[in-house]
Write a protein that binds this DNA or RNA. Structure first.
Length: 128
RNA sequence: CGAGUCAGCCGGGCAAUUGCUGUCUUUAGCUCUUCGUUUGUCGACUAUCGAUUUACGAGGAAAUCGACAGAGGAAAGUCCGGGCUCCAUAGAGCAGAGUGCCAGGUAACGCCUGGGGGGUGUAAACCCACGGCUAGUGCAGCAGAAAGUAAACCGCCUCAAAGCUUUAGGGUUGAGAGGUAAGGGUGAAAGGGUGCGGUAAGAGCGCACCGCGCGACUGGUAACAGUUCGUGGCAAGGUAAACCCCACUCGGAGCAAGGCCAAAUAGGAAUCCACAGAUGCUGCUCGCAUUGGGUUCGGGUAGGCCGCUAAAGACCUGUGGCGACACAGGUCGUAGAUGAAUAAUUGUCCUCGACAGAACCCGGCUUAUAGGCUGACUCGCUUU
């Protein structure tokens, strides 16, 4: 399997999956335009879910663009986020960013999430 | 050449790399699974059955290889109309809603075509909620004397008390009474227009012409039109996206429709009302269907498949029709997602790319839209 692919096993597929992340978010990263929630899963790979509310991004074209960019960067950074279920929420004004700015901000979010995950794992080991 | 009108069309191109969805296809082995045959073991007990297991064959899922296809002219607003599905076979009456010049087209329409009438523009063309206020009821700010069975502010005219003046006749001012819708003024609008006659002054009071109403005739399927005839002096103000009247149309809910499969929970508990009611079919009445129903508590629920894309389909040709369109023949085979694909990055070219993303499917309307192309027509200028 190609390294950067994005099959259905890499996505959150139903309401239960989303509920699990929202109800018990272990990791949180945010910036002006996005909020990222994440949770450890028991699978071999990371999974992504997207929440782009119509209220925050009015035009369907813009919502599609943001989703595509998010998926794109996700599949390029999958190795960083291994064994996490991730939900990305768009905030108001996210549609104002162009593609390049979008990629930059999301990439830095993935990095933050990665370091947080490592720190949390280390802490867990300390606790034990 | 410039300005403009209408109709139709296009809506960045190419390459590389990395991805997504669907259909078809490849696959030695691996993973899961169904069915059939088969090997061994165990149990019940010997007609066999059940559990487990070995191998083979066939199929499916997933994965994999490759090929092909993959947003719009508005996909949008959800404003109309239909198909489709369920509710009764889609029914009756009232209420309600919609449409509103005529004819045609269409599955249907509030759409389209052609025609009539009115308006705008030099014109090509464009615009019109364009049935009825002589069925009824209602409404109308300011100004103005008066605004709907008209009306007398100024003016004009007649009569005229009284005053002044004059020898007298008379002259002059003129309270008041009346006539008058021609003139002034107000207003969006003052109850036909112009002219002549007429009159105290005026007035459709009379006449001519124009306009208008009604009837006939002619033309037209009709709306309607008419250098036609007759008749009426003329009474008809505006508003029906005011009630209303008239004509025609409309049953309801929507793909989370609806159907199938699988799993799970439950065939619950409490309480209230009950053989006539309750529920569903728009509001009401009838009618029809179902058989207990409502509330609270408890439990469960957007898993999969079908519906789902071949369609009132597109293009070409012919025939009929002014046209919308219809009929016949031929060719093509065109997204189908579902936490929701149709893209990203880089390079390059140019005219430097607007508005914007399918969600059951069509026909329209409306709104948004960078830039570009084609055709027909109109007006102006120049040249010949």
């Amino acid at each position: 399997m190609a390294v950067f692919s994005f099959p259905k096993t890499s996505r959150l597929l139903n309401a239960a999956d989303y509920k699990a992340v929202f109800g018990n978010a272990q990791l949180k990263v945010s910036c002006r335009h996005f909020l990222v929630l994440a949770n450890r899963n028991t699978r071999s790979s990371a999974r992504l879910g997207l929440v782009i509310p119509k209220k925050n991004v009015a035009l369907a074209v813009q919502r599609n663009r943001i989703k595509r960019q998010l998926r794109n960067t996700f599949r390029h950074n999958k190795e960083l986020l291994n064994k996490l279920d991730v939900v990305v929420l768009a905030r108001k004004g996210a549609d104002k960013l162009n593609n390049k700015e979008l990629i930059d901000t999301i990439d830095s979010l993935w990095q933050d999430l990665h370091t947080k995950m490592i720190r949390a794992a280390a802490k867990n080991q300390d606790d034990r």
